[in-house]
Simulated assay, not measured.
Amino acid sequence: MLIGVPKEIKNQEFRVGLTPTSVREVCHHGHKVLVQATAGEGIGASDAVYAAAGAEIVVDASEIFARSDMIVKVKEPQAVERKMLRPGQVLFTYLHLAPDPEQTRDLVASGAICIAYETVTGPRGGLPLLAPMSQVAGRMSIQAGAHCLEKRQGGMGLLLGGVPGVAPARVVIIGGGMVGQHAAVMATGAGADVVILEKSAETMQALDARFGARVKTLFSSRGSVEDEVAAADLVVGAVLIPGAAAPKLINREMISGMKTGSVLVDVAIDQGGCAETSHATTHADPTYIVDGVVHYCVANMPGGVARTSTFALNNVTLPFVVALADKGHRQALADDPHLLAGLNVAGGKVTYEAVATALGYDYVEPDRALAA
């Protein structure tokens, strides 16, 4: 199979679909890899390193898309990239389609086989291809939030961990999943006063076992969200419904009731955000202020630490890339129900139910779409 790795063109996105080590592994399996020139610069990997690993270096993205059987990326294809997709071509990347009707429309029109990292499941549950980026984003959320609390950034001028004789910041994390847990690791490490709101009793028990008295857990209800958001200095939105748009747990009234100079870091922004006042921002222009509250809503947070993120992502995506290349997409998807769960669009049909529901498409079961 011929695999293409274009350079990411989303604003301030420095990750790359395959590392040189991954390229070498794919080539060892008898496949060919095209890598766009300078695609790996953001992770410190030169074209010469990719060439030594076995890749063919190609200057133009158009050639990558035209020649490749499978495109491996990190972020969702941008409009110009979507126009280059063709029927039957495999696209393997993050998609986050539920809050993105334009992308969904273009992918449906392309006829391509679109497999989303974020909905591939694991044999023991969970979302293994989303997990490493959730870990990165959770940890970054506290770094970003602490920075935004500085006066110069529009914050109230508060040090996250305080100092002797001065209370630390109160950090409220909405959601106790992978993002929430890793946000808590960083927040507690910095000495903040940390509260996690969560609906699952099992998850709260696990959080209590992990963090003990360093973290307070509360059942997430409308009342508890209202109370804790109002008391917070830093709120981290860490909610996730796999493949679906994020629920709007924080309304405009709650934002208005927050302290002036407090901060919201909405990690759920990839799925539309969990606050009514959230809209996607970039690393180039990461924040804006609503009712005195600093909003940090960067839609590709892990791209800010591209080297760590790319290597962590490749650790989990590479086996699937190899399986798709070795077997072809039909056999690989038929053999692995967890990979099949990642199929969001195929042959002009929406094959992920939460996306179809969110955007008003007819849902077609993945097996049926592939058979057609």
Rank of each mutant, 00 (worst) to 15 (best):
L370F: 02
A341W: 04
T287R: 02
M140R: 09
D227M: 11
S309V: 09
V236R: 10
D291L: 00
D208E: 15
L339K: 03
Q36V: 07
P6R: 07
S22A: 15
Q135Y: 11
I173C: 12
T282K: 00
S220P: 07
I3Y: 01
L160G: 04
G126F: 12
V290P: 00
G223M: 14
V195T: 15
H96R: 03
E81Y: 06
D208A: 13
Q135G: 11
T19N: 02
Q143K: 08
R368V: 15
H338D: 15
E202H: 14
P99F: 01
A137T: 12
R368I: 11
F211G: 06
Y361M: 08
A52V: 03
M301G: 09
K216N: 09
V179E: 06
L158C: 07
T281Y: 03
G360F: 08
V321N: 02
K216L: 14
T119H: 02
R139M: 08
A325G: 05
A245W: 02
V185N: 14
D69M: 03
Y363W: 13
G237W: 08
M178P: 00
K7M: 14
G54Q: 10
I196D: 12
D367C: 04
V355G: 04
G126I: 12
K151T: 14
R152G: 15
V265G: 03
G212K: 05
A37H: 13
M140Y: 06
G88S: 03
A116D: 10
A230P: 04
A246G: 07
L197C: 08
H182R: 04
A280W: 03
Q271L: 05
N315R: 14
D362K: 13
A109N: 10
Q271S: 06
N11R: 12
V72K: 13
K32E: 15
G175Q: 03
N315V: 00
A334I: 08
V298C: 10
A37W: 01
V171A: 10
F311E: 10
C297S: 12
A231T: 04
H28R: 14
V321A: 05
